[in-house]
């Protein structure tokens, strides 16, 4: 049985908040443009970007012409994109509230994290669900390396599959590695030029939105860091207290 929503007065009426995280250059902005393009007909969407220098990603999305420019807002993160999606989500939360109010009724607010490393994931205090993005050009072995986003984001996207032949990556193997690292959670091998993959992404977003609206979606926290090994070979993931220093 799913947990009851924590804020029943807001969760039923506010738009679904979807986070998009992943390393620099994997195509997060492009993925958001793809989502907007695929769903613009049926959903009212707003986007918040968290670039290091305020509005680079926002300008990319505005120039992509997939949404009215006013629905794409940049939020300053004080050079701490990781903090802004996890340790102190205030700025993004306020921006999401404002966007939802200014363009009510919105169905979906997509929040793009500033490009960070493999450890950056969204707090469930900010987003209801999150996509972690990798690309084939970053290397076929990245999915195997794991991390909280790769392992436990609601969806892992392996992006730019059209580049695989040029960078010598076996996409099927990369997806198999990712699926294994994720205990069967969703993985989509995406290229914006591959219609079937875009359809799969579209269906996933609509599926999450449906569950959210039905009140059966429970936000998951991928966790702040990856499980790691100590010299004595003990693995843990920081969900329990322990006395040794890091």
């Amino acid at each position: 049985m799913p947990d009851l929503p924590q804020n029943p007065d807001t969760t039923t009426t506010r738009p679904l908040r979807l986070g998009v995280a992943g390393p620099v250059g994997v195509g997060k902005s492009s993925l958001i443009a793809t989502i907007c393009r695929a769903l613009a007909e049926e959903l009212e969407i707003g986007v918040i970007t968290n670039d290091i220098y305020t509005d680079e990603d926002a300008r990319f999305l505005r120039s992509a012409g997939v949404l009215e420019p006013e629905r794409i807002r940049a939020v300053e993160t004080g050079a701490c994109p990781h903090t802004a999606i996890r340790d102190d989500v205030t700025a993004n939360l306020l921006a999401a509230e404002d966007l939802a109010e200014d363009f009510a009724p919105l169905d979906l607010v997509v929040i793009e994290s500033g490009g960070d490393n493999l450890t950056a994931t969204f707090s469930p205090a900010l987003v209801d669900a999150q996509i972690f993005v990798l690309d084939v050009a970053g290397g076929g072995d990245v999915a195997r390396k794991g991390g909280p986003g790769i392992g436990r984001a609601d969806l892992l996207v392996v992006n730019k599959t059209d580049l695989a032949p040029y960078v010598g990556v076996d996409v099927e193997q990369m997806v198999r590695d990712a699926t294994a690292a994720r205990d069967g959670r969703a993985v989509i091998a995406l290229s914006r030029t591959d219609e079937a993959s875009v359809t799969a992404l579209r269906s996933w977003v609509l599926g999450v939105l449906g569950h959210y609206r039905d009140g059966v979606h429970v936000a998951q926290d991928p966790g702040p860091m990856a499980p790691h090994f100590h010299a004595e070979g003990e693995e843990h993931d920081h969900e329990h207290e322990h006395s040794h220093a890091h």
Binding site: T77, G78, C80, D87, D88, T90, A91, L94
Partner: peptide, 11 residues
Amino acid sequence: ARLPGGGHAHS
């Protein structure tokens, strides 16, 4: 500054 009040985005 670790208190999550949004201050880290201000200078």
